[in-house]
């Protein structure tokens, strides 16, 4: 559906996008993740034809997006954060106006219904709640029955309930056969919502795949959180770390097999193999006469993966 190859864009001395490539399959929700300034926005703007990339190819639904942006826009819907509507326009008017810009528009009344805006159809945009405004933005992205929908931080600024509703809405889009490309800085959201994600950092994609795959592929599949009755000596942890030796199965640059963090009597350890680490840890604590008060073992989250990857590139850059 979407194929981006070796996209590059430079602003003066800053190379914002340094060779990004990815593919999006028809009918999937694809997430672009990354810290601010990573190049997500530039990438999306290039794909939408809002910016002219320096190099690379962009193909959308078989069309060369760089040569035929108008044809692409006919088939693509978008809800970007930086856009807005006139404050006195009503949802119905906005949908009618935008549907007049396309060759094969969807009936605005159907969109009002589908995005639960019928009740507010004739109220000025100014008076809508944040969730309603966001639903209107989504509805507008759908006026042309797009094959591909771009959503830029779709749930930014929404409360938990509106966010959940919006997630359902986005899943419905996919189920209706639309392809969705979204950006987010919320890892939880990406994990719950996206079929596949690409993590972008400093103009490059540092990891790409399904969220579960990324987590599974991570060097730290497990996190051990424990609380003790008194501080744990550092050399004890060194010994434990030695037990859980790395297996080197991921392509990330040599992450430590286990890392400790926290205050002295509250510890978080990360390890690839929970069993041996726990065993070693418990016996070491026992040998030192430290009593265990609380112990949790968790699977690694996308956040761990994300921080690892973005930290790694930061470290790489620093060196």
């Amino acid at each position: 559906m979407v194929s981006v190859r070796d996209l590059r864009k430079r602003y003066g001395p800053v190379e914002a996008v340094r060779g990004i490539s990815f593919e999006i399959q028809r009918g999937e929700i694809f997430g672009l993740l990354g810290p601010n300034g990573a190049g997500k926005t530039t990438t999306i703007e290039c794909i939408l034809g809002l910016r002219e990339p320096d190099a690379g190819t962009i193909e959308i639904a078989g069309l060369d997006a760089r040569h035929d942006p108008a044809a692409v826009r006919e088939r693509v819907g978008a809800a970007l954060q930086t856009t807005a509507l006139h404050d006195r326009i009503t949802p119905r008017e906005a949908l009618r106006l935008f549907s007049s810009f396309y060759r094969r528009p969807v009936d605005p009344e159907r969109l009002l219904e589908r995005f639960s805006l019928t009740g507010k159809a004739d109220e000025a945009v100014d008076g809508l709640s944040g969730g309603q405004k966001q639903r209107l933005a989504l509805a507008l992205a759908f006026v042309n029955a797009p094959e591909l929908v771009f959503l830029d931080e779709p749930t930014a600024g929404l409360d938990a309930r509106s966010r959940r509703e919006l997630h359902d809405e986005i899943r419905r889009m996919r189920d209706d056969g639309h392809t969705v490309l979204l950006t987010t800085h919320l890892l939880e959201e990406a994990e719950q919502l996206c079929d596949r994600i690409a993590i972008v950092d400093r103009g490059r994609i540092v990891a790409i795949g399904a969220p579960q795959e990324l987590v599974a592929g991570s060097a730290r599949r497990h996190r051990i959180v424990l609380r003790t009755d008194r501080p744990v000596p550092a050399d004890l942890l060194q010994a434990v770390a030695g037990v859980a030796a790395p297996t080197g199965e991921t392509d990330t640059p040599s992450p430590p097999a286990a890392a400790a963090a926290g205050r002295s009597n509250e510890l978080t350890l990360q390890t690839e193999s929970a069993g041996p680490t726990l065993l070693a840890l418990l016996s070491a604590l026992d040998a030192h006469g430290i009593a265990l008060e609380e112990l949790h073992v968790q699977r690694a989250t996308l956040e761990d993966v994300f921080i690892d990857l973005t930290d790694a590139t930061a470290a790489e850059r620093a060196s």
Binding site: L50, A84, D87
Partner: peptide, 17 residues
């Protein structure tokens, strides 16, 4: 004022010239 607000950026996402 429409341009400042972002109304024109929204228009730009559509195929209309």
């Amino acid at each position: 004022s429409e341009r400042e607000r972002g109304v024109w950026r929204r228009y730009r996402l559509t195929p209309i010239p």
